[in-house]
């Protein structure tokens, strides 16, 4: 069985990478995230479909090294936060950027101050063509 591949849900998020941090904004919830350590490298890898085993192979220590557990945990966390989508099939992805030489466990800081404001002042999303209660299809437009 092929390993499960994931990709960033680009319809749901925007992200910007700086030297030591990637900032991610999830539009619907208003939550935003700071990715540090190896997290930026992992995030960049999922700009195209990829799987945990491929990342672990490229990380220090190789496929069965200590980075494997870090990557598995982090990918599960990203998926739970609706930042990654599982995908099936598709062509092979381009080679990964080099992993950080000094591996530090990927970290994710979650900021929910704006999502609290959104919850207080609800906004209802409607598809422009179909009206209520059709929620907009992220694939349209």
């Amino acid at each position: 069985m092929s390993p499960q591949r994931f990709v960033i849900d680009t319809a749901a998020v925007a992200a910007e990478k700086f030297d030591d941090e990637t900032v991610v904004l999830h539009f619907e919830s208003g939550r935003y995230f700071s990715l540090g350590g190896a997290a930026s490298w992992i995030w960049q890898a999922f700009e195209q479909p990829n799987d945990v085993a491929t990342l672990a192979t490229a990380a220090p220590g190789g496929a069965l090294g200590p980075a494997l557990a870090d990557i598995e945990r982090f990918v599960a966390e990203l998926e739970a936060l609706k930042l990654l989508l599982p995908v099936s099939g598709g062509a092979a992805s381009a080679p990964l950027a080099p992993a950080p030489e000094l591996w530090a466990a990927p970290s994710l800081e979650v900021f929910s101050d704006l999502s609290d404001l959104i919850a207080l002042d609800p906004v209802h999303e409607v598809d422009a063509m179909m009206g209520w209660p059709r929620r907009p299809d992220p694939g349209i437009g």
């Binding site: 319809a11 539009f27 002042d121 609800p122 906004v123 209802h124 999303e125 409607v126 598809d127 422009a128 009206g131 209520w132 209660p133 907009p136 992220p138 349209i140 437009g141």
Partner: peptide, 20 residues
Amino acid sequence: VPGTEHLLAPHDEVNLREGN
């Protein structure tokens, strides 16, 4: 927006979207 009148609280908004 048809169908929303009885569903909305006073400060609610309805967004019509195309994509994001």
